[in-house]
Amino acid sequence: MSTHSFTYAGGTVEPGTVQHTTLAVSETFVGGDVEIPITVVNGEELGPVLFCSAAVHGDELNGVKVVHDLVDRYGPADLAGTLVCLHVVNVPAYLAQQRYLPLYDQDLNRSFPGKERSTPAHRIANAVYSGVLTHCDYGIDLHTSTRGRTTTFHVRGQVAQHDEVARLADAFGANLVLAGVGEEENSLRTASTARGTPVITVEMGEAHRFQERYIERALAGIESVMTDLGMYDGERVEREWGVVADASQKTWVRSDEGGLVELHVGVGDVVDGGDSICTVHDHFATEEHEVTAPFRGVVAGLLQNPIAQPGHPVCHLVSVDEETAETIRRTDESS
């Protein structure tokens, strides 16, 4: 639980106040500070400290809008506890509008908890981790799919290993939860969870855009988490169906041929084993090859760039049982 005042590397925020600030995490080539924008909303009542972070990958923008709306939606009078909002974690990549740190192509989300004396990515990760994340009790890290792909709305976390991670995932209310430990080594989520700050990752949609349906669902999920934690008197998200899948229940379905891709499914769709996911056409329109589902599942991710070469992933498929498949189909028909 938080103390009444919230103290971190950016200073001290008194109860019942809001602080909009920037935190220096690195330097530019000309010696100026690289600063990440942070908002701290410290409630009038005692409660947990929850962080929400966005743009650890610089081109993943849905989360940026979610955090923007959070600081506009909740004030100190609304909260028991502290809401820490990291608007843009990877500022250099965000400015370049690319996934990784410019020049060295380093993945910030494989660099946590970071090191004081190492690569640029590790130094930024260390400044964020030690300066902000270690001062929080829980976390929600917001992401999208990488460029050229899209992903359905889902949560990732070490739900089988950590009861409080499972609590966050359940409270957030996404239908699909991808469980795992050891995946995404040195990510913000795994490093923070290992230290004792339970974190879930929210994946939603595409890079380089705001997608309102996902943004609103994420805001509802965060309110649901704050309600569960006793931070806010709000609404809990009620799921119509739910799947928690481990590594054995999911796969990337890949094309064995190169060519032009004609998709036959969308994210969130259910397919049966043997159903066509896409057709790959050659450029002369003389050959075509079907890519089929290896098992019954829900489409969690999908290629958006409509060209492929052998081995190219075209569909992220998560196994579901027949009863869940029928529930998803009924839900889709009624929506």
Rank of each mutant, 00 (worst) to 15 (best):
E206Y: 03
E238C: 00
A179F: 12
D233N: 03
T201Y: 01
Q211A: 08
I215A: 07
L188W: 03
M231V: 01
D228G: 05
L229P: 02
H208S: 07
R239Q: 05
R209D: 06
P198R: 10
N186S: 12
V181E: 15
V202R: 04
A194D: 09
G230V: 02
R189W: 07
M204E: 11
E203V: 09
A171M: 15
T190R: 12
D233W: 00
A179D: 15
R239G: 03
R213V: 01
G234W: 01
V177L: 12
E238D: 04
T201G: 05
A220F: 00
V199E: 07
R195K: 13
R189T: 14
E184H: 15
T227P: 06
M226E: 05
Q211F: 04
T227W: 07
T190C: 12
T193K: 12
T193N: 09
Q211R: 05
Y214P: 01
E212R: 09
E183A: 07
E223P: 00
E183H: 12
E240V: 03
A171W: 14
G221V: 03
G196S: 08
D233A: 06
D228E: 10
S224C: 00
L176R: 13
T197V: 12
A207D: 01
E184T: 14
F172G: 14
A174D: 10
G180A: 12
G230Y: 05
S192M: 06
E184F: 15
V181M: 14
S187W: 06
F172C: 13
R236K: 09
S187V: 12
E185S: 14
T190F: 08
E216H: 13
P198L: 08
V202N: 08
G173I: 11
E238N: 00
G205N: 06
S187G: 14
G196T: 07
A207K: 02
M226W: 01
R213A: 01
V225R: 00
I215P: 00
A174W: 10
L229S: 05
H208G: 07
L219F: 09
G180C: 13
V225A: 02
A171R: 14
Q211K: 06
Y232V: 07
N186H: 14
R239W: 07
V237L: 05
E235W: 03
G173R: 00
L229H: 01
R236G: 06
T227F: 05
P198K: 11
T197L: 08
S187L: 10
A174G: 11
D228T: 08
D233P: 02
R217M: 06
L188C: 08
R213E: 03
N186Y: 13
R239E: 09
R217V: 03
T201L: 08
R213G: 00
P198M: 10
E216D: 11
L219I: 13
G182W: 11
G182M: 12
L219A: 09
V181R: 14
T193Y: 09
E235M: 06
S192T: 02
A218T: 08
E223T: 00
F210E: 06
A171P: 15
V225L: 04
R217F: 02
R236M: 11
L178Y: 15
S187R: 10
A179S: 15
A194R: 11
R195D: 11
R195N: 08
E183K: 06
Y214C: 00
T190Q: 13
A179L: 03
E235D: 12
A194I: 09
T201E: 03
A174Q: 13
